[in-house]
Design a protein around this nucleic acid. Sequence first.
DNA 1: TTGTAATTATGAACACTGTTCAATATATTT
DNA 2: AAATATATTGAACAGTGTTCATAATTACAA
Lengths: 208, 208
Amino acid sequence: MGIAERKEREREGVKDLILSAAREIFLAEGYENTSIRKIASKIEYSPGVIYLHFKDKNDLLLALHDKAFECKMNSLFHATQHIADPLERLRGIGIGYLQYGIDNPQDYELMFILSCTMETLATKEEFWKDGAMAIGLVKETVKACIDAGYFRKDLDLDEVSLMLWSQVHGLVTLYTKERLNIYEGQEKQAFLFRTFDLFFEVVRQSFK
Amino acid sequence: MGIAERKEREREGVKDLILSAAREIFLAEGYENTSIRKIASKIEYSPGVIYLHFKDKNDLLLALHDKAFECKMNSLFHATQHIADPLERLRGIGIGYLQYGIDNPQDYELMFILSCTMETLATKEEFWKDGAMAIGLVKETVKACIDAGYFRKDLDLDEVSLMLWSQVHGLVTLYTKERLNIYEGQEKQAFLFRTFDLFFEVVRQSFK
DNA sequence: TTGTAATTATGAACACTGTTCAATATATTT
DNA sequence: AAATATATTGAACAGTGTTCATAATTACAA
């Protein structure tokens, strides 16, 4: 009997409706202004229906987080994996990360700033596999830099990857959270990339 | 007539009451759980009285931001200014910043993450002087490192200061926002400081 | 086809939130 | 003592996440 399957499809249909409506509101109005009632009224359902598909609001936000990660990681992976030289690939990942954070502040917040996502993961006793995959990509590329002779062999992959990550994460968040206005006269985005260039040059030289 | 003065004192007294109650709740329960009604009931006033001293909730939060900055900057300044060697002073500032972020996540969020503070500053057409002073301290110290021959002369103070700042800011926020759990087995705080040591060594070598 | 069971959806209700403002209470001046 | 000025209140408004008894719809068996 195909009824159970059709029912399941219908269920998933509503769930997708909720998710895409939520995503639209979230991208347009941000985390604080994304309410259950707004989402429900956008898809012309009652507010209660959302709780048939998600445990609570954080659970819904986590689903948005997953979708954003899927998207970002795919594009970052595809845009950099074709670069043969591991050092240039590493630079490409950094620049791609920066650009993504600049262009998608809402998604970035969901992925790397908001606590609700990690809290919800913790209640489900789930591992942050999206984050692990992303940082795994960085570690692999650093390893490739070592193997290619760009970096010395005694470097700790955890430390190096965190150093690279926190540098670009810091740049993105100081920018999106409007903390760079104290640098008057600087064109902010260009300033960001120049600073990343300086950082990368510093790393390249010192890790030789 | 001293009546106007006494009235003013009483006014300020209530304002301070509000601020310290707000600070207590904010530190204990965080940004999301700090409500006007909670603050009012804590000081046994009606909710409306808060709006006689602050334009709105963000205005009150900005006052907390200012207090936190006053506190942090003083302690960071005092704890590092006695270090004669500029390179060690710079390292001291970095470590102090890290430690502060780790120990005071709520205050740190108010100072460097939340948008509401910057938005409120913008509506008042005010400059973020607290932030400017903090980064000014970093720039001065970098300048001292150049003058002392630790760093080469052609470095751009803006770029270097942003690179240093975003590194420690990134470390603090990835830590407090629970993004480091993907590094399994690492004792998080020690891991943070080790990574900072690596970073600082990299900077020291490359800027020579 | 009808009756029963299971699923799906509703929307009112609860306890909150920031904010406003007419009414009230208190204090000061005339 | 009366009039004025200031300080404080708390109800009201429009919103929030979440729950749950009720209602509507659908599926399956008789």
